[in-house]
Nucleic acid binder design. Structure first.
Length: 152
DNA sequence: CGCCTTTGACCGGCGC
DNA sequence: GCGCCGGTCAAAGGCG
């Protein structure tokens, strides 16, 4: 629904289309505290060892949106949230739902400009987009990744 | 009914 | 050697 303006460059001064909606800043639909969770005894995980570390490319680009969750057409499952010292706002960690698609997405807000959201993609998708209604966000990503191609 | 969200704890690496 | 930071996972509950 909401159109998100992707900033091709870091310094996108031209910003007059700041039509702030009446959306809640918190946008916390739940707002309910749960006592469950936590206190989990992590058993030894027979993770694959000897696995070769695959070089993961990180694509980070800034987007101007009121909401942290940007609908790029893929399904993301939030798996964690931690606050960064440098940033006053917490960073959200999202992961792709598709089996076999281990793409990770990190969303962090700017410490100075909360209106600016930094989205960092890790890995590449290997499955078709589910939501075709959304504009090809991936296209923008590919276009922006040229500017923000960080090789880990 | 299924999927997703939230929170706490734990782990690993690095720094001091 | 210990502390700190960042990142990940797992279970439960809620909502669609």
């Amino acid at each position: 629904m909401e159109k998100h303006q992707v900033l091709s460059t870091i310094y996108s001064s031209s910003s007059s289309s700041s039509s702030a909606s009446a959306s809640d800043f918190n946008s916390d639909v739940h707002g309910v505290k749960k006592g469950g969770g936590g206190g989990v005894l992590r058993t030894e995980n027979g993770s694959e060892k000897g696995g070769k570390e695959i070089k993961r490319r990180r694509y980070a680009f800034e987007t101007r949106s009121e909401v942290d969750i940007l609908d790029d057409g893929y399904r993301w499952r939030k798996y964690g949230e931690k606050s960064v010292k440098n940033n006053k706002f917490p960073r959200s960690y999202y992961r792709c739902s598709y089996r076999g698609c281990n793409v990770k997405k990190q969303i962090q807000r700017h410490a100075k400009d909360e209106e600016i959201v930094v989205t960092t993609y890790e890995g590449l998708h290997s499955h078709p987009v589910e939501n075709s209604t959304t504009e090809s966000f991936e296209q923008i990503l590919l276009r922006n990744h040229h500017i923000y191609t960080l090789t880990l």
